[in-house]
Simulated assay, not measured.
Amino acid sequence: MSKIKFLSLLAMALLVFACGKDDDDNGLDVAELSNLQYTGSSAMLTVSWDAFEGAMMYVVYVDDLYATDGMETSVMLGDLEDGAVITIEAYADFDEEILIAKGEITFDASNAGGSGEGSGEVGEVSNLSLSENHGMVTLLWDAYTGAKSYMVFVGDEAVSTIPISGNSHVFNDLEDGAELTVKAYSDPEITDLIAEGTITYSAE
């Protein structure tokens, strides 16, 4: 094989390799998302990051499993295990083909803001009551002074990933004997627990 032919084949091989590499990462360097942080507890965590120029959508993964996506620069995640790895990917398109930035943070339950326990003495949410109508159960409680948001739990499981601003919640399906807990927080990010109350549901 002549030297010229060998060099030609080598050049073609390098070109094919380069093209294949560009196809994998869209020919763009993947930057790093900045100011990636979280507040809250394992039951309800708010993850936020700085907006990345050119990003049209963000995709969130927890331990490599898809969690959610959207155009906002913050998400709320629930029921996280200690050590869970949260990954944020920023795309320049809505088809998740042009990855332009990425960030990763590990959840440390012992270091979570407020750890879901609040910063002071925990008071009591009072006058919890239940009423049932056509199979729907309404839970009511007195507004707690200083509370900006509430979370409702059935056992240890939150009924929603979004905090409640009012003082009621409607259940479509409850098991007899279910223990319902209302937790009041002094902040919308639900990092400072200031009161809680519990009631048990008895089917009529």
Rank of each mutant, 00 (worst) to 15 (best):
E121N: 11
L128Y: 11
V159R: 10
L140C: 07
D142L: 04
L140R: 13
E157T: 05
G118V: 01
A109C: 00
G135A: 01
P163R: 08
S119V: 07
L140W: 10
T138L: 13
S131D: 14
A143C: 02
E117A: 12
S131W: 05
G155W: 01
T145V: 09
G120L: 02
N167P: 02
V137Q: 03
E121Y: 01
E132R: 07
V152Q: 05
F153D: 05
S126L: 14
S110A: 13
G113C: 03
F153W: 10
S119H: 13
L130I: 14
S119Q: 11
G123H: 02
E117C: 03
T138G: 04
A158V: 15
K148I: 07
I162W: 02
M151E: 08
G113D: 12
S165N: 11
F153P: 05
L128V: 06
D108A: 12
K148F: 08
F153H: 08
S110T: 06
E132M: 11
G120A: 13
G166Q: 13
N127I: 00
E121D: 15
V159Q: 11
T145D: 15
S131Y: 10
P163N: 14
W141G: 04
G135Q: 04
A112M: 06
F153A: 10
G155T: 01
A112R: 05
A158Q: 13
G116E: 14
V125C: 08
V154D: 08
T161N: 09
W141Y: 08
